[in-house]
């Protein structure tokens, strides 16, 4: 994964609580054996009407939101299944960060491993960001701040290791493989 510093983009509001992974990408699109090309199915059943045309009422379909990379979503985003296809689909659809008041554990883990920032803010900060949806905001991973013109920066917490992996492009599998001796010792001690 390449080094990651900051994103500046228009934000899009999706203020629905408990957006589950079946909404992010329905199970019928999990039949692939690769990671590529899932973006067209991101939010499939909300984004496309029965005749295949874009749903004009869905935020990501509005012309002014084209190219937006930051989602401000309702509470408990990404609940449900462990499908990594969810962050793969969002990234392929151009989304690089999701901000919510709570993010489900497995989704957050999967997202960070793929360079999709999953950020939790307080309800007050969330409400303020929702009010400003449509404006450009900057998410700075280095300083761990969300910046928005005319407002105080919002500090966010992120797991230190995940942050380091994103900033430095650390490969987690390589990190684990480098511990092969310790793993072998552990296995030897148990048998």
């Amino acid at each position: 994964m390449s080094g990651f510093e900051s994103i500046t983009s228009r934000s899009v509001a999706l203020p629905i609580a408990n957006i589950d992974t079946d909404q992010i990408i329905p199970a019928r699109y999990l039949t692939t054996t690769t990671r590529a090309g899932l973006g067209q199915h991101a939010f499939q059943d909300w984004r496309w009407l029965a005749d295949g045309s874009p749903n004009p009422n869905f935020a990501l379909n509005r012309a002014e939101n084209a190219g937006a990379q930051i989602l401000i979503a309702g509470d408990n985003f990404g609940c449900g299944s462990s499908r990594e296809h969810a962050p793969w689909a969002l990234l392929d659809a151009g989304i690089r960060a999701v901000i919510s008041t709570a993010i489900a554990d497995i989704f957050r883990n999967n997202a960070l491993k793929n360079g999709l920032l999953a950020i939790v803010v307080s309800p007050t900060e969330h409400a303020s960001l929702l009010e400003g949806a449509g404006e450009a905001i900057t998410i700075d991973l280095h300083t761990q701040q969300i910046r928005r013109a005319g407002h105080a920066p919002i500090a966010f917490a992120i797991n230190a290791f995940a942050r380091q992996c994103l900033l430095d492009g650390v490969d987690e599998l390589g990190y684990l493989l480098a511990r092969t001796d310790a793993i072998t010792r552990f296995e030897g001690a148990r048998t």
Partner: peptide
Amino acid sequence: GIGSTEVGHVLATQ
């Protein structure tokens, strides 16, 4: 439950 990246981690390193 884990995602597919972690499935790879466990396959390769347990």
